[in-house]
Design a protein around this nucleic acid. Structure first.
Lengths: 326, 326
DNA sequence: GTGAAAGCGCTAACAA
DNA sequence: TTGTTAGCGCTTTCAC
């Protein structure tokens, strides 16, 4: 915040009014070509940069979007943020990012910060199943991606997410076709997601006439700390011949534990793909989320809602692509 | 930008002046406890959020930092951005990120955008060896991380980066100790970095009385497209018994090619560590950058300069840690 | 301890 | 085609 040269300086130098400078620099059609040129030259010479904050406050629009994610180090959110930034910047918006680490307080603080920064809209991957979003957000448009808000208010917001049931079903299906008979699942800590993925798991079992076993259906902690131990439990104690990890952080936990186990015959499946899986000795069947698409749809919908807050809310459900890897 | 309730509304409801509300909400000591309480209650009830833009424009400080990076999908920058966000947010700043894809135009556009958004300072990992930063940046403080600005202006800015020479030397050293006699290098496309890493490479060779061979010193394209072919060239045609990749994207390219080559005895080294390397069948010796430290130092220095623009510019050189992996 | 008034840099009526 | 004026929401003297 050190650009001390303002529209007034340009106006004085050019011998015109501030209004004319503003018009010229904003390409208003109603300014004489000669004037515009002179003004532009002078602005360049002075190294003038318009003060976007002043403009925003005046036009009541910041051209900034806020994005709330658990952790950008998680590959899914890295890719999502990139996609969102790309689409947003194409539309003349930039993006403010806050990492919550699944922490409700951090999320609340982040949202507040963004509201103060007057973001035009918010893209949220929720950490808080119990957060009162309508109260927090006020009239600021928001779309939820991947993680849904609490069930009682979910219909008040636009949502963009993957088809968890189908994606999971395809993976389990593939594992079964390749001979798996007893497939353990380490499910996500995110409840809405977990419910759907478990459902896909059960559907695939049913379709193959395999009966589910509660003993081999477990749920990871949010921080993933219990995943290695569960891996052992399922693959060794419970003698599973395949293991399904419900997201990429869970799979990372599984991979950490594997070498200790000295197993030879078992299969692996995971929701969320990862380019590094290609380099691993053990093939992993995955459901690859259309992350770029998720981001694109989310931003487009958000901007549409910014332009028209009367839009009915909607859920966008995108298909996951199975990557068999054999 | 939909918060239509302002300080004025709170003032009216509370029966005080706007000034008093402002003071109360900013914890000015000179406002009566009772007044402050009443104001805070009313502000809460109304769901009042201060307009940060208006404040910024008034106090001439945005409490926002800008960050220019090539691509957040590159693990190094993912981690760097996280570190920077953490330190910045701790200090009450948030950060705006722009990806340049090593594109000069995108970088210029991004910097302009940030100047318009009135960022208090900029953290830059430069794409442009030929960019005229002093002209672009004006008086906005900037610190360069990892990628340095052009040599003729480098001393005008603070810089934070790793000890490339030592890091590389340690890796090559380790490879030699383990028996390597002919170590190929695929160097970085970033010239300043490449120069230093090559120097470390040569030093290690010299220390072991191995003579360098220009035929096995090659440089990757910025987009890494020629890396797979170079991998084959060095490991097969040139019969290298070890390969050093000068950064993590290069190593990814190497790994892509390896399976085709069906080689059994060779070693791998790389600058930049990656958690996924732990899961690979082939051990990789790396120099792990202190990324969190780089980010922390960069933000701290930047904020120090924001507070005092008379600070002499300085270079911060941090050590890399060798991860031998055998 | 509180209020009145000015002004940060900009844009948008309304005039000329 | 251009200038004048008002005001976006806030903080900060300067009074009282």
């Amino acid at each position: 915040m050190s650009t001390n040269i303002t529209i007034k300086d340009v106006a004085q130098q050019a011998g015109v009014s501030e209004a004319t400078v503003s018009r010229a620099l904003n390409n208003s059609p109603q300014v004489k070509q000669a004037t515009r040129l002179k003004i532009q030259t002078i602005a360049d010479r002075l190294g003038y940069h318009p003060n976007g904050l002043a403009r925003s406050i005046r036009v009541q629009r910041s051209h900034t979007l806020g994005m709330i994610i658990p952790d950008i180090l998680n590959g899914f959110f890295t890719q999502l943020s990139r996609a969102i930034e790309d689409v947003a910047s194409q539309a003349g918006y930039d993006v403010l990012i806050v990492n919550t680490d699944e922490h409700l307080k951090k999320e609340a603080k982040g949202i507040n910060l963004m509201l103060e920064k007057q973001v035009d809209g918010l893209i949220i991957t929720s950490a808080g199943a119990f957060t009162d979003y309508p109260k927090m957000l006020g009239h600021t448009p928001a779309v939820f991606v991947d993680r849904m808000p609490p069930a009682n208010i979910v219909s008040q917001y636009d949502r963009v997410l993957v088809d968890n049931i189908q994606g999971t079903q395809d993976i389990i299906d593939c594992l079964i076709k390749r001979g798996a008979q007893r497939i353990g699942i380490i499910n996500s800590a995110v409840s809405a997601t977990a419910t759907e993925r478990l459902q896909g798991y059960h559907r695939a079992l049913a379709a193959a006439n395999l009966s589910p076993d509660p003993d081999i259906e477990v749920t990871a902690r949010t921080d993933g700390s219990n995943v290695p131990q569960m891996t052992r439990q399922l693959l060794v104690n419970q003698k599973c011949d395949a293991l399904f990890a419900a997201d990429n952080t869970i799979m990372t936990g599984v991979l950490t534990k594997l070498p200790d186990l000295h197993l030879t015959h078992f299969q692996l499946g995971a929701f969320d793909d990862n380019e590094w899986f290609n380099f691993l000795p053990q093939p992993i069947v995955t459901a690859k989320q259309p992350i770029a698409e998720l981001g694109r749809v989310a931003v487009e919908r958000l901007l549409a809602r910014v332009a028209n807050d009367q839009l009915p809310t909607q859920e966008f459900r995108l298909p996951a692509e199975i990557i068999p890897r054999s």
